[in-house]
Design a protein around this nucleic acid. Sequence first.
DNA 1: ACGCTCTGAGAAAACGCTTTCTCATAATTC
DNA 2: GAATTATGAGAAAGCGTTTTCTCAGAGCGT
Lengths: 347, 347
Amino acid sequence: MGRGHMARRNTNRRVGIADVAEKAGVSHATVSRVMNGNAAVDPGIAARVRAAAVELKYQPNPVGRSLALGKTDTIGIVVPDLANPTFQAILRGLSIAAAQDGYRVLIADSSEVTSEEAILAGEARRRCDGVVLCAPRMSDAELEELAPTLHPLVLINRTTVATNTPSLSVDYGQGIQELAQHLVTLGHRRLVFLSGPEHSASNRQRLVGLDQFRKEHPEIELQMLHGGSNFDSGHESTEAIISSGATGILAFNDLVAMGLLSGLHERGIRVPEDISVTGFDDIPFAKYTTPPLTTAAVPINELGSLAWRRMREQIQQAGEAATQAQDEFSPRVEIRKSTAAPALTPA
Amino acid sequence: MGRGHMARRNTNRRVGIADVAEKAGVSHATVSRVMNGNAAVDPGIAARVRAAAVELKYQPNPVGRSLALGKTDTIGIVVPDLANPTFQAILRGLSIAAAQDGYRVLIADSSEVTSEEAILAGEARRRCDGVVLCAPRMSDAELEELAPTLHPLVLINRTTVATNTPSLSVDYGQGIQELAQHLVTLGHRRLVFLSGPEHSASNRQRLVGLDQFRKEHPEIELQMLHGGSNFDSGHESTEAIISSGATGILAFNDLVAMGLLSGLHERGIRVPEDISVTGFDDIPFAKYTTPPLTTAAVPINELGSLAWRRMREQIQQAGEAATQAQDEFSPRVEIRKSTAAPALTPA
DNA sequence: ACGCTCTGAGAAAACGCTTTCTCATAATTC
DNA sequence: GAATTATGAGAAAGCGTTTTCTCAGAGCGT
């Protein structure tokens, strides 16, 4: 029972195409043809090969396939922070959508280290058939330079001008304006925006939106307060918020709002009776806070699956340079219980 | 300026080792040696090669390397549901720890479809150097059969007897007992356990723990209520909880507890004054609910990084069959504001 | 000055697969 | 029945690396 000429190195080798070929008494090529259904193979032989394959539990080695086919059936995603529910949701949507088409996703977390992003993205690209760059913190110039080298690329929360790479963005500017408008309609006259990370493009968009809002509502007092993007930064801002004297708070996102909510609660300040608070994103937790959070809903699951669709389009087209879609989502204000008319409307 | 014999197929080929070799006037082999610093190379030549490499922006193709080296520097993780913060945290911990050692992670979400788990795990294994199986829902028998085929394998929340694969588990049984004890100590006499998914091994552990608890506290009334593992199932149980007449509620996990918290709030029932609620896991959101949730803290970030350490040990040892560690974590009860003495202790 | 060891670079095999190329055999046509 | 065309399987080239094998030339000792 010789193992043939293949028994050269390891005895406990993983079963390869050669083993199946030997067992079925055919050539490597024929096994490959049968496994991939590529060319016509005599039904009898095909059956023999298939039988040998199942008997040996043969599973083609994906690395070998990848090298031969020039594709890995894998896409990469680079996120600034995997702890952020927004990015988790995008990752999830992407992963599920991609899986439906037989693709897997490789993840890379830049941990908000801007300088790592380009490296991670490049590495991911070399291992994968494409890359999704999620809310990159790098500069526009850097992004512009990097984009072409990544080519099958989908951008989330950023856009490029030079190359026409598909991008998915959310109109944060509009969303924050609508939230501000909501507060004003309720009767609030003194607002605070608790801003997010400086490198965040979406934070800049919110600021631009609020500038616009100021022009349209010169009668409203709108203060800016520096913050971050997580619970803790919201919590830490509690005192500053209280002493601001504002009655309506626009938090950078839901996480910040939740941190703030908890801080206010500890201080015995009632929401929404004393202060109204809004979030942004409508993460799944937002409607379960106490009180449920008024926020601007970003269709976060769709983002992931649409990202995959755009990626797939590029992978399939390969050659033809089609015009790439620039999708923009408008957040929808979700009014819950964390906002209400202020107790005393100042004269 | 001929491209040499390499210009056979695509003009816009990706730059390969051959291009560098040609430019530096050396052989493929030498370029490889320089890039990997494997063998001694004449400093002059090495410099020439390196110069050529940077000029051409040469980056070795990982697929080629993987084939040659028999490793991918990638590990896979299979989770039942990427929407669950617990698994997200594990994924994150794993990803960050692995990245520190130059490894990437490929994710697979079985979406709670038990029959997919084995397939996904197998596929992941073929593409990666190892697999982390996170809270698999499959039967013990299936797991026992699958484990050896996955070999560099780390199990989370499950164990195997046959193969000695390292496993990380949490003593859910003890944790839930401690929470129950906490409620009893506060004066509660009527408790409810709002249980989780049936296929979940950790749910079974909780049930076993509570059986034990019952034996030790025959005087306590402990009801079981069916539920799930997310917000909605907690929210949906609100009525059943209220009509149970219990004053202390042990929710399957923090998500369920949060859903319940919100349901109780809507019904005007105060927590903890009227009813005490506990969660499990101590997800980041738990301390920001209103009121902050009493829960059993699972060291969730450590789980991910420890999973990587165990994986790395196996990858490095390769040959030597070392005894594999079975790590067990004891949850630590985190007392917050969602539990308190019941208003009226029944006679 | 001759032979020996040692250093270092190129040739070639290997990794596991797909696919083109080639050719034998069977099927078809006049 | 001989020439022509389908059909289908094997041989071999490639995919992009690493690594073993081989060998030329430099350095050394006597």
